[in-house]
Design a protein around this nucleic acid. Structure first.
Length: 969
RNA sequence: GGGCGACUAGCUCAGUUGGUUAGAGCGCUGCUUUCACACGGCAGAGGUCACAGGUUCGAAUCCCGUGUCGCCCACCA
């Protein structure tokens, strides 16, 4: 369409995932851990690994024919991106958006790093629920001697710093009861039993000792009373906090702020000490007293035994629990209190919320824009709001941002952008001012906890000795990968420098991505883009469906159910994978894609199963020979031929490409003289099929353009598939064969074929670049004098000419197709030998007769049927097969082959069918249809009913005629 | 617990704002191989649109509910 376009290819460093993979390999191959080889050596190894995979990923894109700007390939850790990251961080730091705080992280004790919530998977396991007594200190008369708490993780009691009770248990219980009653009233029958049971229990509790005890405890909490933490004999306060639910468990809850997210919140609210009892390797530290050094598992047993011996263990219940596991190491996650850097989200999230269109019809639909004058399409959407397509994803974007939760940006990793913060112990602000006077790339802020200073430097690094007499130590942690990915739209264009690229291409037009990173990536790109540049990063966000495997599971490396595009390309070609993917791109959120292996030795299809899909090599069950999979790593495995992946969707696409190729071959074959390409319009108006193909082509051009511009890729592909296969190949090319054989008509026929093919391949080229380019080059070669562009890639995309769209012509052509099909059907169903020519006649009105008479040669070439008569007066020949159609009857003369009984049976069946339709329609009119439906619809239905009745009458007449021949039947 | 989505032919899926007799590919059945393409051609069979209500002259489509499956978010002392 003539636009200046840019597609920046690139990869991000995928911090945790990448480091974990390299560490795992390091351990598997050399039995070394990251601590054995050190930060520098590990990072060096990860770079090597990354180079290898970047090459592979970029290679996959290239082989798929993606037309990226390869010389602009970016990586989130390269210098250009790193500079942007430091600038972004510095700007945030300087403006007060960055702070440091304690936070519970998901600690992977195996990898010894924090992992993000997304990398934590919950696994259902059988666990226990322990009830433990904590003695009350100095119980007064009327007060309980113990409080009982329940836990699934008894070892964490060593880190308890309080026991919480609700400040007003009675009111709270009443409130819960009231809510439950309200729910019960509106609940479906099925759930009522369970709700009622719950309600009964609560009511019972209300009058029980539990509640009266809780009331006493609430008062004691208000009086700042304490209980004794057993085993460690540490007095801990009884606190009043809403987190303790009087309706649940014992109504009291132990508070372990350093090892439980909710308890942490309580700890903050009640100003409780936070005692970390864990070492980074998952063993207990000195805070655990006699239990120090034990693993959490051993400590749990020891704690339970010790409590039991003291008579403080009330009971143990079996309980199914959802235990958090690290997705990376598959080991249980320990919540762990750690220092973290955060970005305050309040105002940033608000700008991101305001930067997307929150109403489905809030933004105009994209319009077709062609820009021969080089106008940029970004002018079309200048309200500074991005639009998400499909719109339903807007909700998850807005909901997530609405929580405005601060963004923890530090990761305890070595692979990533190291946080540009330096610590300096004992330094005074005056010293900093002196050391950095005149520098605007350094900013400092006081650590409210220690009183030390944090120094942030935008440039690449501060020397340890930058402050005379002091030592600067850089933060060990690196930044979350999304911190750098968030900058992608502007950092890759050179921000913070004022580059021409940034001025020209930013804001960008379209971001295409997967729904699972709408929050992680899209939301952060919007807020970072607005914060850094003041503008939204893109006009449109297109969320494509996600391809799942045949079991409906997401594809992942660890499951081994992913697809290497190169495997698909190897078997079906790049055009096929591209077409197949575009064809699958509906508004649906999932696409299931069944794939199987194909044995390279014998061609047998080997079903892909959950078991064999992760193997490096597979033995073919048919020929017993081994083949490799995409996972092959050893030289031995790699030497085997690859079992390519088969898939029905790819086959369909491959067949389509093949069809296009063959159609083009046919056209090329007939280019005996060099016709001029161009619109052969005026000459072609004499032929119905020419007018028809023009109309179809322009309709298709219009619809495809509109579909592509509104991200309806599957629809665009379906339109092109149907047009190319059915209209162009099955009808137009077939019809023009007879014109090509006629010297008088040959020239125009050739120009017509060329014209349609030329437009078709231009329309297909964005999706099927390789085959269409090859066809283009051959056309160019066949017509050296024609003004073909050097490559189809730079040839103009067709622009619709609406004046050629003629619905009445398309309707007329349908009549031809209907008659042709009727004749062909008679041939096929009556077993007329293919070489036998038959004759037929058609009873129809005058206009139709005039329309179809010129088509006689096509009935001959396409159905080997000779037309003998057209018109109102046509009567059925004595021994014919009659096909009643809308407004006409087709009589095929099959006197040699006729089976009268069978013909009659067919007609009778047809009449029954028509009766059904007629009844349905008449019933419709018996209702208030005619009065209430729009006039156009009523008229259409009325006509349809008339036609059906006529058709029925024709069938009856034909039946009568046949039965006269055989009076007995 | 909250949200989103799916359920249409044996299989995999289309079906835009409600409107003629619900479509495609694969598979299946019959015929077809010098004549662009067997990765092809022609024709055919095959569906109570998950279930139950409702709105409407009219529902695959809109509304309420049920079931099954999947995904996302939150939480589970």
């Amino acid at each position: 369409q003539g636009f200046e376009t840019l597609w920046v290819p690139g990869v991000d460093h995928a911090g945790i995932a990448t480091q974990a993979v390299v560490e795992r390999r390091l351990f598997e191959e050399e039995k070394l851990t990251r601590n054995d080889i050190g930060r520098e050596a590990l990072v060096e190894r990860i770079w090597k690994w990354k180079d290898q995979y970047q090459t592979r990923i970029i290679g996959q894109l290239k082989q798929m024919g993606c037309s990226c700007d390869w010389q602009r390939t970016r990586f989130t850790l390269d210098d250009v991106c790193a500079k942007a990251v430091r600038h972004f961080f510095f700007k945030l730091f300087k403006e007060g958006f960055i702070y440091r705080g304690k936070r519970l992280v998901n600690w992977d004790t195996h990898l010894q790093t924090a992992v993000s919530d997304d990398e934590v998977k919950h696994v259902t396991v059988d666990g226990s629920f322990w009830y433990i007594k904590y003695p009350v200190i100095d119980p007064q008369p009327g007060e309980p001697e113990y409080v009982v708490v329940a836990t699934t993780r008894p070892e964490t009691m060593l880190g308890d710093t309080a026991v919480a009770v609700h400040p007003d248990p009675e009111t709270q219980t009443d409130k819960v009861i009231a809510e439950l009653e309200a729910r019960l009233a509106g609940a479906p029958e099925k759930e009522k039993t369970e709700l009622q049971k719950e309600l009964d229990e609560l009511n019972e509790r209300k009058s029980s000792e539990i509640l009266s005890d809780l009331k006493v405890l609430a008062r004691m909490a208000a009086d700042n009373r304490s209980v004794m933490l057993p085993l460690l004999n540490r007095p801990i306060p009884l606190v009043a906090d809403e987190w303790a639910k009087p309706e649940k468990g014992t109504g009291c809850v132990k508070i372990t702020p350093a090892h439980d997210p909710n308890d942490y919140e309580v700890g903050l609210r009640r100003n409780l000490p936070m005692i970390n009892i864990l070492n980074k390797n998952g063993t207990l530290n000195e805070e655990a007293g006699p239990f120090a050094g034990l693993t959490t598992k051993k400590a749990r047993e020891a704690v339970v035994t010790a409590l039991d011996e003291l008579g403080l263990l009330v009971k143990v219940e079996d309980r199914v629990i959802e235990l958090a596991h690290s997705d990376r190491s598959k080991t249980p996650i320990e919540p762990f209190l750690n220092d973290q850097w955060f970005v305050k989200m309040e105002t940033l999230a608000q700008t991101a919320i305001e930067s997307v269109t929150g109403q489905a019809d809030g933004a105009p639909a994209p319009k077709s824009i062609t820009a021969p004058d080089g106008r940029l399409p970004k002018e079309r959407n200048s309200d500074d709001k991005a639009r998400i397509t499909p719109f339903r994803y807007t909700k998850s974007y807005l909901d997530w941002l609405g929580e405005k939760r601060d963004w923890p940006i530090g990761r305890q990793l070595w692979w990533g952008h190291r946080i540009p913060i330096w610590y300096c112990k004992g330094v005074s602000e005056a010293e900093l001012e002196k050391a950095f006077s005149g520098r605007d790339d350094v900013h400092w802020r006081k650590d409210p906890e220690t009183g030390d200073w944090w120094v942030c430097c935008e440039e690449d690094g501060l020397a340890a000795s930058a402050v005379p007499g002091r030592e600067l130590v850089q933060e060990e942690d690196v930044l979350d990968t999304w911190f750098s990915s968030a900058l992608w739209p502007h950092s890759t264009l050179g921000w913070p420098d004022d580059t021409p690229e940034l001025a020209y291409f930013y804001p960008t037009n379209t971001l295409i991505t997967s729904r699972d990173i709408i929050t992680l990536w899209v939301a952060r790109m919007v807020l970072a883009g607005k914060f850094n540049t003041g503008q939204k990063p893109f006009d449109d966000v297109y969320i494509h469906p996600k391809i799942l495997d045949k079991y409906g599971e997401t594809m992942s490396k660890s499951k081994g159910n992913g697809v290497d595009p190169l495997s698909v390309i190897g078997k079906f070609g790049a055009d096929a994978i591209r077409f197949a993917l575009a064809y699958l791109c509906t508004e649906s959120q999932d696409i299931r894609l069944a794939l199987d292996f194909e044995c390279p030795h014998c061609g047998a299809v080997v079903e892909q199963t959950k078991k064999n899909r992760v193997l490096h090599r597979i033995a073919c069950p048919k020929c017993k020979k081994d083949f490799r999979t995409q996972w092959a790593e050893s030289d031995e495995d790699k030497a085997l031929p690859e079992g390519l992946i088969a898939g029905e969707r790819f086959e369909v696409a491959r067949n389509f490409c093949n069809k296009i190729w063959n159609a083009a071959r046919f056209v090329l074959m007939n280019l005996s003289v060099s016709p001029k390409p161009g619109t052969p319009c005026s000459d072609a108006l004499g032929f119905l099929e020419d007018q028809w193909i023009f109309s179809r082509l322009e309709t298709v051009t219009r619809d495809v353009t509109e579909s592509l511009e509104s991200f309806r890729f599957a629809e665009a592909m379906r339109i092109l598939y149907d047009f190319a296969w059915d209209d162009f190949c099955s009808f137009y090319v077939e019809m023009l064969k007879s014109r090509l054989a006629d010297d008088q008509h040959k020239s125009l026929a050739m120009r017509m074929l060329l014209y349609v093919l030329d437009n078709l391949i231009r329309l297909l080229h964005p999706v099927i670049p390789f085959v269409t380019e090859e066809i283009w080059q051959r056309l160019k070669g066949a017509m050296p004098n024609a003004a073909y562009e050097e490559s189809i890639t730079i040839a103009p995309f067709p622009v619709v000419d609406e004046s050629l769209i003629k619905p009445e012509v398309e309707q007329q052509f349908k009549v031809f197709q209907e008659v042709l099909r009727a004749v062909r059907d008679v041939r096929a169903s009556r077993n007329v030998p293919p070489k036998t020519e038959i004759s037929f006649s058609v009873r129809c009105d005058k206009q139709t007769a005039e329309l179809l008479k010129p088509m006689e040669p096509y009935f001959l070439s396409m159905a080997k049927a000779k037309a003998t008569a057209w018109g109102e007066a046509v009567k059925a020949p004595a021994l014919s097969a009659a096909v009643p159609l809308t407004g006409m009857d087709v009589y095929v003369d099959i006197s040699e082959l006729i089976d009268v009984k069978a013909e009659m049976a067919k007609l009778e069946k047809e009449i029954v069918k028509l009766d059904g339709f007629i009844k349905g329609k008449e019933a419709k009119f018996d209702g208030g249809f005619a009065d209430k439906a729009p006039a156009a619809v009523v008229e259409k239905e009325r006509q349809s009913l008339v036609d059906l009745k006529e058709q029925r009458q024709s069938a009856l007449t034909s039946l009568e005629q046949l039965s006269n021949l055989h009076p007995g039947t």
